[in-house]
Amino acid sequence: MYTIAAINAMSKNEFIEKIGWVFEHSPWVADRTWVRQSTFESLQTLHHEMVKVVREAAREEQLDLIRAHPDLGGKIKMTQSSVNEQKGAGLDTLSKVEYESFLQLNNEYRTKFHFPFILAVKGHTKDSIYEAMKGRIHHTMEEEFETALSEIFTITFFRLEGVVQKVLEA
């Protein structure tokens, strides 16, 4: 864990290495955040600046960020963060029938939107994730693109919370 002061003292390369992973396979977010902001007042400020970088990015870059995420309940190679997050929601214990259901719905979702279903799984169960996927498959492309980005922002905030040490005020 790092304090905000330690993060503010990092070189660009160190910042990208230590913080850049929070946006799945997209170190460009940390790179651009470091360039535009010399210091961060808090975890919230750091996250806000990183979100601004993504919001200001070209749509194709945003789409690449969305596509960098793994399918929920899938068995492809994932980052350790994704493995831990999915495990916490019980996606590592899917029965054969549940796995097949997730696989089918993931495939339908990918066919329709051309990117993976994304959900900040913290606080969810495999059943609530499946129900969310079933509901969101009826969204329009624009609705789902915005929902995917919003979920990514939630995921990255949770990840940053695990990295940034909170300093208690007296």
Rank of each mutant, 00 (worst) to 15 (best):
Q104W: 11
T79H: 12
W21Q: 11
S128H: 09
V22T: 09
V53K: 01
H138S: 10
E151V: 05
G90Y: 08
I155Y: 00
R32T: 04
F113E: 03
H124N: 08
K112L: 13
S81W: 12
E24S: 04
D71I: 04
F23D: 00
N106A: 09
D127C: 04
S38C: 14
M50L: 08
L72K: 01
F145S: 02
T156W: 02
T125M: 07
A5P: 02
L160R: 05
Y99W: 13
E85D: 11
L63V: 10
K126F: 10
V35T: 14
R67K: 13
V97Y: 12
K122A: 11
K122Q: 13
I4G: 02
G73S: 13
G90T: 09
K166Q: 14
V83C: 06
S81P: 02
N84M: 14
S38K: 15
K12N: 05
G20W: 01
T3L: 11
F153H: 10
D31C: 03
Y109L: 07
D31M: 07
E146A: 12
L43F: 05
S150I: 04
N8L: 11
T33Q: 07
A148F: 01
H139G: 01
S95W: 09
I155T: 00
I19F: 05
R136E: 02
V54H: 05
I66T: 02
L91Y: 06
K166S: 11
I137Y: 03
L72I: 09
T3D: 06
V167T: 14
A57L: 08
F113V: 07
R67H: 06
V83H: 04
M1A: 10
I66D: 00
Q80H: 12
I4D: 01
R110Y: 14
R159T: 04
E151I: 03
W21K: 14
M10R: 05
R55V: 15
L46P: 00
N13Y: 07
A89F: 04
F23Q: 01
P70D: 05
L72M: 10
I155R: 00
